[in-house]
């Protein structure tokens, strides 16, 4: 699944909100054993934030790194499972906030945690066909977990944005190809009008997360004639810490190659942004010439795999916007009561 003309990443940016809640604080409320907490802490959106405000900040950072005028962007694709409106696009608000011209292909996309990488892939096609020059692909989510549910420990919030451009030395990386693998697998869902999603417990593992990521990664490597040892880094969707570590091992990647992009223990599962923030964290440290494998996963279910090679321009562009680490270090801890207020779990009337 490789376009006839190569594309690259001209700029990237992330956003992680400042608030954090520790896993042990959630466990304290529900009387759960500390030994059973899946991650250390997760990010929480503030009262005046949503997946739109997240998308704007991540995109602003991406545009800053790309060094282009926002008016040069001709497509905005937003992947999210937590849009503030059920009907009314996120992409239009994001575009107008950023000063992007109304002469624009703009659309919201939904495929659980996978929508952001599918946005990247769709923009690659638009750029490779010369239909547009620059396109903005965003993954953004403020995920909700039902109180006491396993997901409450991990459902977090964040965004990542990538500007896809025609192949050029200006790009911080080029994309060698992508590969998608999807099946009808009901591992996690939320019916219309419901606030919280449901999931099929252990069924979310083997037939869902592991099967789709494995097939997408292997499919990509076969099409590009690469093996796992050809990659310097690997980034996988991160619903927790256990799953990405296990799939890395199965695909032949040592811990050393996944640690820089593995952030779920300290920010949680940022859904559509999860693998994309992981990729950004790797771009924050990678050297020119290094090759990165990124594989997303969205329930329902499917995965997109990408092979990305870092270029020289990374060195000068990296510092033009905050790094993933800057957002991770800027944090304020809240207790469960404040968390309940921030996530609108307290009724005041």
């Amino acid at each position: 699944m490789k376009p006839s003309k190569s594309t690259g990443i001209l700029g990237y940016g992330v956003y992680i909100p400042v608030y954090r809640i520790k896993g042990e604080e959630i466990a304290r409320v529900w009387g759960r054993s500390k030994a059973a907490i899946p991650i250390q802490e997760k990010s929480v959106p503030g009262l005046d934030e949503d997946s739109i405000t997240f998308a704007v900040e991540a995109s602003k950072n991406a545009i800053q790194r790309a060094g282009i005028n926002p008016e040069e962007i001709e497509a905005v694709y937003v992947g999210s499972e937590s849009p503030p409106y059920a009907v009314k696009p996120t992409a239009t608000v994001v575009a107008e906030a950023l000063g992007i011209s109304p002469r624009l292909i703009a659309i919201d996309m939904e495929f659980a945690c996978r929508a952001g990488t599918t946005a990247m892939q769709s923009i690659m096609g638009l750029v490779a066909s010369s239909m547009i020059k620059y396109g903005l692909a965003i993954g953004t989510d403020t995920a909700q977990g039902r109180p006491r549910d396993e997901l409450e420990y991990t459902a977090a919030a964040g965004a990542a944005a990538f500007i896809i451009a025609p192949h050029s030395s200006e790009n911080i990386a080029y994309i060698e190809g992508s590969y998608s693998y999807v099946t009808d697998t009901t591992d996690f869902w939320r019916r219309d009008g419901e606030v919280y999603p449901r999931h099929a417990y252990r069924f979310t593992g083997e037939p869902a997360y592991f099967h789709h990521i494995y097939e997408a990664a292997v499919g990509l490597m076969e099409e590009l004639g690469l093996k796992s040892s050809d990659f310097d880094y690997a980034v996988f969707h991160q619903p927790n810490v256990k799953f990405p570590v296990r799939i890395a091992k199965r695909l032949g990647f040592p811990m050393e190659k996944i640690k820089d992009g593995l952030l779920s223990n300290i920010i949680g599962n940022t859904y559509a942004a999860s693998s994309m923030i992981g990729l950004a964290a790797v771009l924050d440290v990678a050297k020119p010439g290094e090759r990165i494998l990124m594989v997303s996963f969205g329930s329902g279910a499917g995965s997109d795999a990408f092979s990305i090679v870092v270029q020289d321009a990374i060195e000068e562009k990296r510092r033009l916007a905050p790094l993933v680490r800057d957002y991770i270090e800027k944090r304020k801890y809240i207790d469960y009561a404040v968390y309940a207020r921030y996530r609108s779990k307290i009724k005041t009337r």
Binding site: L47, D48, E49, D50, T53, E57, K60, A97
Partner: peptide, 11 residues
């Protein structure tokens, strides 16, 4: 005197 930067939020 504290330094602040603009950010896009819900009103």
């Amino acid at each position: 005197g504290m330094v602040v930067e603009a950010v896009f939020r819900r009103y």
